[in-house]
């Protein structure tokens, strides 16, 4: 057990945890931020995607001891009212079915658009294929990303 100061959604938070604890569980169990989801724990599904200094990472693979002084953004911190262009596009396309994967999908999509503001079909396939949607909403996810890219 050790104490860590980590910066989540712009605030410094203190956490006492085993240094190996993945940020995913720190967010969910310690910091009461359950928007970031657990799906596989082995970097295969993308449900746990957050931003580390603005880039998409799988929080199930990121130990708390490795993120000191770095900016973590979760779905809860993406926008104040759910009005980030990507969130708006998601609502416009009514993407979700069960909705469980969608926080991870959105965090990945935001990161994709940051790096490639005008992504091609292939860019989207390449970047988003790490995120599983068991309900099969991929066509809507793609359409929403293309729409968000316009704004």
């Amino acid at each position: 057990m050790a104490n860590f100061n980590i910066k989540v959604n712009g605030k410094v938070r203190q956490v006492e945890a085993d240094p190996a604890t993945p940020i995913l569980w720190v967010l969910r169990d310690h910091l009461d931020l359950p928007g970031t989801k657990y799906g596989c724990g082995v970097a295969q599904c993308g449900a746990c995607t957050v931003h580390l200094n603005g880039n998409a990472v799988r929080s199930c693979q990121l130990p708390v001891s490795a993120v000191a002084n770095q900016e973590i953004t979760t779905i809860e911190g993406l926008s104040a009212k759910g009005d980030h262009p990507v969130q708006k596009a998601w609502l416009e396309h009514d993407v979700a079915q069960c909705g469980y994967c969608q926080a991870g999908q959105i965090m990945s999509a935001v990161s994709l658009l940051k790096n490639k503001p005008k992504p091609t079909d292939e860019d989207i396939n390449a970047f988003m294929s790490g995120n599983i949607c068991r309900c099969g909403t991929y066509t809507r996810i793609k359409a929403a990303i293309l729409d968000a890219a316009k704004s």
């Binding site: 759910g82 609502l91 979700a96």
Partner: peptide, 20 residues
């Protein structure tokens, strides 16, 4: 539109695993 759409895209605790 899905009445829970906004909650879903903002990561609100909706699921069993989020229950606390």
């Amino acid at each position: 539109k899905n009445v829970e759409g906004l909650k879903i895209v903002t990561g609100k605790p909706l699921f069993g695993l989020d229950y606390k």
